[in-house]
């Protein structure tokens, strides 16, 4: 186990290098540059060239990358072109808002998903199962921005129950409806699979009460895929919420990132990509470890 963790930790280094190089190239190869946005007949193009040079953008691209890499190793990700702030600060201001939205949505999702998934699996094909199957699929099938606007029209404009912008409630509901479906399906599927396993039959045959069978034996194993899915959905933390953030004017990372791409704000793009990469890799690693702990059948040193 320790060897496995250590091994994975070592793999992180080339992984991060690969990610940084790839994203550096992709962002620089996209046409346009950060000063292109200042179109104004009163600005002399020579002035733009001067600003570009101040930012070091007149250097060959591989030199720019090496400079970036050298600074990044010292945890200096440069300064945003638009705000002049250190990228770390800029991200730090947004991260808590994103985390607030994401974590509350995760918790709310789990609170709904686990019981619904379990009941749906145990009472397979009951009206409850069918109803929630339909609801969760429908939730997944509606484009987010449409759902968000509908909720806003109903709850803010018509009913005056919830504020349209700058409040956690509506973005949280929108986001949860979107992610509910997937997880409920996984939870139900995993539960079904586990319930058909030999050891559950044995447990049942032994005459254990159904409650014990389900919650003690089955759910524990059926949580595995849920853990994995949670781990896998981490990338959405950074990008996936941008639609919701834009509609509800929520100051999170998604908007920061999308805006940075449109503005060709290279330092900010790189900062966000690297930070999210690190978090995702760590998230995956933790999910794998959790997996290994919950399911001792998984062995890692295969060859």
């Amino acid at each position: 186990m320790r060897k496995f963790v250590l091994n994975r930790l070592l793999q992180i280094i080339p992984l991060l290098l690969g990610i940084s190089l790839l994203s550096f190239l992709v962002t620089r190869l996209a046409p346009g540059d950060p000063t292109a946005l200042f179109i104004d007949p009163n600005i002399d193009p020579l002035e733009l060239a001067r600003v570009r040079a101040n930012w070091g953008l007149d250097q060959p691209i591989f030199i720019q990358y090496l400079v970036w890499l050298k600074n990044a190793l010292l945890l200096d990700f440069g300064r945003s072109y638009t705000t002049g702030l250190p990228v770390i600060t800029e991200i730090g201001e947004r991260l808590p808002m994103t985390l607030l939205l994401m974590i509350s949505s995760f918790i709310l999702t789990l609170l709904i998903t686990i019981p619904v998934g379990v009941i749906s699996a145990v009472k397979k094909n009951s009206w409850f199962d069918n109803l929630f199957t339909f609801i969760s699929f429908a939730g997944m099938a509606i484009p987010t921005f449409w759902l968000g606007l509908m909720l806003m029209l109903v709850f803010s404009v018509k009913l005056h129950w919830l504020p349209a912008v700058g409040n956690l409630a509506l973005p949280l509901i929108t986001m949860t409806i979107g992610s509910l479906a997937g997880l409920t399906r996984y939870q139900r599927g995993a539960m079904l699979e586990v319930l058909n396993q030999e050891y559950i039959r044995v447990a049942r045959a032994k005459g254990l009460p159904e409650r014990v069978v389900i919650f003690k034996h089955a759910l524990r194993n059926a949580l595995l895929p849920t853990i994995t899915i949670l781990g896998l959905s981490l990338p959405d933390l950074f990008g996936g919420a941008f639609v919701i953030e834009t509609i509800f004017a929520w100051p999170g990372m998604g908007r920061l990132g999308v805006q940075a791409i449109f503005q060709r704000n290279y330092p900010t793009i790189m900062g966000i990509v690297m930070l999210s990469a690190i978090l995702i890799i760590v998230g995956n690693l933790l999910a794998d470890i959790a997996y290994a702990i919950v399911d001792p059948r998984i062995r890692y040193e295969k060859k």
Binding site: Q11, P14, L15, G18, I19, L22, S23, V26, T27, L29, A30, P31, G32, L232, P235, D236, L237, F238, G239, G240, F242, G254, G257, V258, I261, F262, I269, I272, V273, S276, A277, I280, I281, N284
Partner: peptide, 22 residues
């Protein structure tokens, strides 16, 4: 699988936007 991890580690919307811009 590490390559898969690299791709997964990108918030896909950023990748899509960057490639689309390109």
């Amino acid at each position: 699988m590490r390559a898969v991890d690299v791709m997964f580690a990108f918030p896909s919307i950023f990748l899509i936007l960057a490639i689309q811009a390109m």
